[in-house]
């Protein structure tokens, strides 16, 4: 192994690397939830779907030897969970927030249950693209070893941002999310649109899980997720239902999360719990600074139970 002493430069580099490495699950889950919430439904159960997706992807990758089949299988199960959530919430008086919480237990429980035989075996990792070849510093090369899913996630964010504004499907989702009555007046069936949006949201969340188990940290265990799914749902509100905002929020969260280990690695060793809380503190501070009565919920879908 070649090595170069980079000293304090390790901190910004770790934040960059961390942003790229850690953010991907947040990107996929929050983009998925953006689609769901834009249609007027909230799915707090994405944490459970993410965990189940992580397990499925790993299991399928172990059994078939193909990580991409794992991702595919994960997204299929995620879609199934999402459609289930969408279907059950279409009944009157059923509370989507509460069902989401129950789904979180259900998804994690099933994943832990069926994931037992896959804790020991190793699965093939998803490939990464080395974009750091221009540098001869190994740390930079490592930080710029970018996983394909991250790139897909970034492209998806841009695409969704464009699609919500410029496509008929985007318009339909937005109309349904803003007012069921208006949607019905346009001849749309809000339940169907929400059902599909929740299904897509679930599929994306499960891909986020696949990234966790197949790339970073890259193994299946019951502790693979430390609440990324739940946090990503919260980040959607932070990003004000804007796909580009989700991408930025995910990067911010991933980068800030790298601060704690990086500071310790250069010798700043006191108070690490507080450094570990950096992503949460930073997000909260930004939210407080950018909110004010009146304009805070600009962009909030009118039918969303959590912001009504």
């Amino acid at each position: 192994m070649e090595s170069t002493d980079i000293g304090l430069w390790g901190v910004p580099l770790a934040i960059l690397g961390g942003a790229i490495r850690v953010s991907t699950p947040f990107i996929f889950v929050s983009l998925g939830e953006t689609i769901t919430e834009r249609s007027g439904r909230i799915n707090l159960g994405l944490e459970g779907i993410l965990v189940f997706g992580a397990m499925t992807a790993y299991a399928v990758a172990v059994m078939t030897g193909s990580p991409w089949l794992g991702v595919l299988a994960a997204s299929a199960t995620g879609a199934a969970f999402g459609l289930f959530h969408g279907w059950i919430c279409k009944f009157p008086k059923v509370n989507d927030i509460a069902i989401g919480i129950a789904l979180m237990l259900f998804g994690s429980g099933l994943a832990f249950f069926f994931g037992k035989p896959f804790i020991q075996p190793s699965a093939p990792d998803l490939p990464a693209i080395p974009l750091g070849g221009w540098s001869n510093i190994p740390q930079v090369q490592a930080a710029l070893n970018i996983n394909v899913l991250f790139i897909i996630g970034a492209a998806l964010a841009v695409f969704l941002w464009w699609a919500f504004k410029n496509t008929r499907a985007g318009l339909i989702v937005r109309v349904v999310g803003d007012s069921s009555d208006a949607a019905r007046a346009m001849g749309l069936n809000p339940d169907t649109v929400r059902l599909l949006s929740t299904g897509v949201g679930g599929a994306l969340a499960a891909i986020g899980g696949a990234y966790l188990s197949l790339y970073y940290p890259g193994s299946w265990s019951e502790g693979v997720s430390s609440g990324q799914g739940l946090m990503a749902v919260a980040l959607v509100i932070f990003a004000r239902w804007n796909p580009l905002g989700c991408f930025a929020a995910a990067l911010l969260f991933g980068g800030a999360g790298a601060l704690g280990p990086a500071l310790q690695s250069v010798g700043v060793t006191q108070g690490y719990y507080l450094f570990y809380a950096a992503p949460y503190i930073l997000t909260l501070v930004i939210m407080i600074m950018t909110s004010s009565p009146g304009r805070s919920l600009a962009g909030a879908p009118g039918e969303l139970s959590i912001t009504k």
């Binding site: 919260a234 980040l235 507080l274 949460y280 304009r295 805070s296």
Partner: peptide, 26 residues
């Protein structure tokens, strides 16, 4: 925060829970 700054209570309470746990550990 919810009433005077219109910060969504779901996300702020979740963030503050993580911050509280960090404070406790520290």
């Amino acid at each position: 925060l919810r009433h005077y700054r219109a910060v969504n209570e779901t996300i702020s309470s979740l963030l503050m829970a993580y911050i509280a746990i960090a404070l406790m550990n520290q």
